[in-house]
Design a protein around this nucleic acid. Sequence first.
DNA 1: ATTGACACGTGAATC
DNA 2: TGATTCACGTGTCAA
Lengths: 206, 206
Amino acid sequence: MEDLDDEYKNYWETTMFFQNQELEFDSWPLEEAFSGSGESSSPDGAATSPVTSKNVASERKRREKLNQRLFALRSVVPNISKLDKASVIRDSINYLQDLIDQEKKLEAEIRELESRSMLLDNPTRDYDCINNFAGNQQQDLSCINAMRSKKSRQMDYNTFGSSITRVHNHSLIEVLEANEEEKSTVETKIQTAIAAYNDPNCFINF
Amino acid sequence: MEDLDDEYKNYWETTMFFQNQELEFDSWPLEEAFSGSGESSSPDGAATSPVTSKNVASERKRREKLNQRLFALRSVVPNISKLDKASVIRDSINYLQDLIDQEKKLEAEIRELESRSMLLDNPTRDYDCINNFAGNQQQDLSCINAMRSKKSRQMDYNTFGSSITRVHNHSLIEVLEANEEEKSTVETKIQTAIAAYNDPNCFINF
DNA sequence: ATTGACACGTGAATC
DNA sequence: TGATTCACGTGTCAA
């Protein structure tokens, strides 16, 4: 009995692979079958019912599976601080969130790069805007009004809005995560962005 | 005894929050202290040593912590097939690997986009256009303002994006503390802002 | 000596 | 029904 505990300890604490573990368990069904078929008595003299022994085996298998999964998780996540079960899960969560954040960053960067290359592909709109601006040189509101025609504005809104909705569409995780401080921060940033967009002098696509 | 088991079952199977759980456990140390201080005897008549009761409490706490972590993990990973412990870890591993793969993909895409824009884009082109225009219209300050606006807007965009990513850069505790009410509040405010922004008749500042 | 982490067996509950 | 999952208490080992 103590041997098994020891083996489990080693299994968990070291980087031993599952084959060893399964080998360990390959040697177990012997005693298990013996105890299951023969109604063997436990050391204290009480008889073990067959359903109980079944349950024992099942439970042992369940524990093994869970440890297996946990070990696999540990092998996927880098920089595990402690080999503790709870610590493994904790580090996994942190790593997962880091990954999600980085993915969002990369997606934003891709969007920006794509839009920039879009600008390069057909820059007529920019030139139109500048020409229009040059035509109405008196710097009155006409240029601004032209720039803020419903069409262009709607288009810009779509780009802007889709990015927003995508942000808080992301599997409702970040919604769960928002606390008071961050909420206000987000709001401030959104208002800043909207104000910048509202700026008449801003004629660049989002 | 069965009550606790029941509560644990509910705790795990449902989306019950940890406050309830902690409430559950706030009521537990009573019996625990009773058993710890009084050397109470177990039903079979054997005396329970204080070190044993300590061990029991410690073990209970450990189990609670592990379940907490597992629950948090479950809240982070979308599309959990089964609420089983092992299944949760399994789905987490799959999701993690998907994320890693996608991250590599995105990085490759970014690399390609950057190299393509490097090839096609001479970096001064954007500003050349505006600078030439500004040079021709030497007195036109609005163009310079526009340029500055572009730059500042881009800064805002970047800040905005980073703030978004910072929203879900949280610790585990914040996930546990989040509730439905905050979720709907944030979402409503964002929707309201976007709707108002979308209104073509709305020219007021946000 | 104390603490923390583990595997184990067991009874209950859910499907 | 039987199989599966769970929380629990306990003994053991290591730091």
